Amino acid sequence: MTTRWAAWLADNAQTRHNLATKQGWDAFVHAAPRTPLERLDRAQLAALSAEELEDYNDARAIWNANPPTVATAQLTRAYGIVDQVMASNHRDGDKLRGAVVIDAAPALGKTTIATRYARDFHRKTIRRHGNRTPDGHQRLPVAYVPLSAGTTLKDLNLKLLRFYGHPAATRATRGQLGALAVDCVASCQTRIIVIDDLHFIDFKHRNGHEVSNHLKGLANEMPVTFVYVGVRLREKKFFDEGLLGPDTAYAQTSRRSTRCEIAPFTIISTAGARAWTALLAALEAHLLLADPRPGMLTDHARALHRRTQGCIGSLTNLLDRACYLAIATGAETITADLIDQVTTDNAAHTIAGTA
Rank of each mutant, 00 (worst) to 15 (best):
E51S: 11
P68M: 01
I192L: 12
E52Y: 00
Q23H: 06
G242C: 00
V70P: 04
L297A: 09
S212D: 14
P292D: 11
K204H: 13
R302F: 05
T72V: 01
C260R: 04
R77S: 09
D83E: 11
T277D: 06
V194M: 08
T125V: 15
G178L: 11
A13Q: 08
I268T: 10
W63I: 03
R139W: 03
G136P: 09
D94K: 02
A65T: 01
R162I: 11
A168C: 07
N57E: 15
A50E: 12
D120T: 15
R274C: 03
A172K: 03
T253P: 10
A301E: 03
G330L: 01
A32R: 15
Y250A: 11
G136C: 11
L304M: 15
T335E: 08
I195D: 06
D58Y: 12
Y79F: 15
L96V: 12
K204V: 15
G295I: 07
D103C: 07
A263M: 13
E332I: 01
A271Q: 10
G150N: 00
N207A: 13
A336C: 06
L161K: 14
Q84I: 12
L96M: 08
T248R: 15
A78D: 01
A285T: 07
L243S: 05
A347E: 14
G24F: 14
H349G: 15
N89K: 00
P67S: 00
S269A: 04
Q176V: 01
T3G: 02
R171G: 12
N89C: 03
R307Q: 06
V145L: 12
G295P: 14
H122E: 08
A99M: 15
L160H: 07
L19F: 13
I81G: 00
R321K: 13
